[in-house]
Design a protein around this nucleic acid. Structure first.
Length: 437
RNA sequence: UCCUCAGUAGCUCAAUGGUAGAGCAUUCGGCUGUUAACCGAAGGGUUGUAGGUUCGAGUCCUACCUGAGGAGCCA
């Protein structure tokens, strides 16, 4: 019934000269007496409309003139290429339908001016409408899709692991406890890895991809209490396979983001050369060498300790691409890491430290596969054997060398977007002092 | 859990121990090419909470609350 065809703003280039309809929200309004420039966003982009008083019905002009920010509306008119407009296209408004006006008494709280982080986080549900947040979450989507495409096209089967788990995967970190009927205590998962080992013995190469929960009282720009992690696990695989797959995965993701999300990266003012340099081979070093380098740079670290945040930054600063550090002391890593057969005091684990000081984005390695070694490691870590009987079964019934890793999605998003804080990389971040909205 | 910093108008911030202010937002008026538009005017406050010092506290002291940054721990 309408002669105007409904389009999304990001499709504007294909409809120049046509009568179209944009359904969206008023992003901003500039007016100058007898001409109005409504900026409308529709989720795919932002376009500027032009409403000239002399050319449109009086009631349409009057409605637009007093429209409040974020009121929902439908604009109809002809599309035109316009160098003066942001985005390169402009809509000559002929008709406008108000869907819902934001009341004058309760104006939209997030203005085009500056706001503090506390205010913005309190209004996260509205903040998501802004350009920057929009760009970040679109890059996140691209990264998630790239991760899935990489594994799906490389022979991995998606087998998701449970969120409710009866015991710790890693004894060191804190768990969120939940009541699970009849007062049985369960915990929110902190890693799908132990279950991945079971599914890898069933399917060969697997991955799980879901939310992870850690009740750590960490207050830093790198921590969330709820975050998304992708964890591949490969049967008949070694530490070297982990390093190869991790390197391939990261390069694949970076390639996809550069290919498909240039406009978003531009919005974020990301230095593309920092992403373009992320190519194989990534530099590799042992933990031993890393400690020597850190000591030479003035770090307090001694052999046997784990790296702090500044250590990770110090190590990475000499490279324009991620750094792989392997063979950590057994004490600093979880019980399931396979000891190096040539040096039992270190384990076959590797961390991938992102460039530009973004820190650890991937951690993984080769798993213990012999029953007696695993039993000894459980005992060394003071873990209750009963809870791990099913896990020990994997070593009783055809255990094989296997390996895998976990990649934190939000850290990868923060890194590739070049943003300061991880809280903006997920729609509704859960942190130590914030679980609302 | 520890360390550091902050809390003043809807928002972002100023105010030497001496009358609580500006920009933006909002309202009213003006403007036919604006780009966080601009110009003029108006309204808007229990200075996070509770005590204390002082003739006098937004400012100094104590406790608490909330938030931010960092440490430890981690992806």
């Amino acid at each position: 019934m309408s002669d105007y065809r409904r389009i999304k703003i990001d499709q504007a280039a294909a409809h120049v000269g046509e009568p179209v309809e944009i359904a969206g929200w008023l992003y901003n309004l500039r007016k100058s007496g007898k001409i109005i420039f409504p900026l409308v966003r529709d989720g795919s982009g932002i376009i500027q409309g032009v409403a000239v008083k002399a050319n449109i019905p009086v009631e349409v002009f009057e409605m637009l003139k007093d429209l409040t920010q974020e009121s929902s509306l439908i604009l109809r008119g002809k599309l035109r290429a316009e160098a003066r407009a942001v985005g390169g296209y402009e809509l000559d408004v002929e008709q406008a339908l108000l869907v819902q006006a934001v009341p004058l008494e309760t104006p939209y709280p997030i203005t085009p001016k500056e706001h503090g982080i506390d205010f913005l986080m309190d209004h996260r549900h509205l903040w998501l409408r802004s350009r920057r947040q929009h760009a970040i979450l679109r890059v996140r989507h691209e990264i998630v899709k790239a991760i899935r495409d990489y594994f799906d096209s490389n022979g991995f089967t998606l087998v998701d692991t449970p969120i409710f788990t009866p015991a710790a995967c890693e004894g060191t970190t804190n768990l969120f406890e939940v009541n699970y009927f009849d007062e049985e205590k369960l915990y929110l998962t902190q890693s799908g890895q132990l279950y991945n080992e079971a599914t890898a013995m069933a399917f060969g190469n697997v991955y799980c991809f879901g939310p992870t929960f850690r009740a750590e009282k960490s207050k830093t720009r790198r921590h969330l209490t709820e975050f998304w992690m992708v964890e591949p696990e490969m049967a008949y695989a070694t530490l070297e396979d982990v390093k190869r797959v991790a390197e391939e995965l990261i390069c694949f993701i970076v390639g996809r983001v550069l290919e498909n999300r240039k406009p978003e990266l531009a919005t974020l003012e990301r230095d593309l050369s920092k992403l373009e340099s992320i190519k194989p081979p990534f530099p590799r070093m042992t933990y031993d060498d890393a400690v020597k380098i850190l000591q030479a740079k003035g770090s307090e670290i001694v052999w046997g300790g784990d790296f702090g945040g500044t250590d990770e930054t110090l190590l990475g600063e000499d490279f324009d691409r991620p750094l792989m550090v392997d063979r950590y002391p057994a004490e600093v890593k979880a019980f399931y890491f396979e000891p190096d057969p040539e040096r039992p005091e270190v384990v076959l684990g590797v961390d991938v430290l992102a460039s530009e000081g973004y820190g650890e984005v991937i951690g993984g390695g080769q798993r213990v596969y012999e029953l007696d070694v695993l039993e000894r490691r459980l005992a060394d870590h003071g873990l209750p054997r009963e809870a791990f009987e099913w896990y020990l079964d994997l070593r009783r019934f055809g255990g094989v060398p296997h390996a895998g890793f976990g990649m934190g999605v939000e850290r990868a998003v923060a890194w590739l977007c070049g943003i300061e804080h991880i809280r903006e990389t997920i729609a509704f971040p859960r942190m130590l002092n914030r679980a609302r909205p």
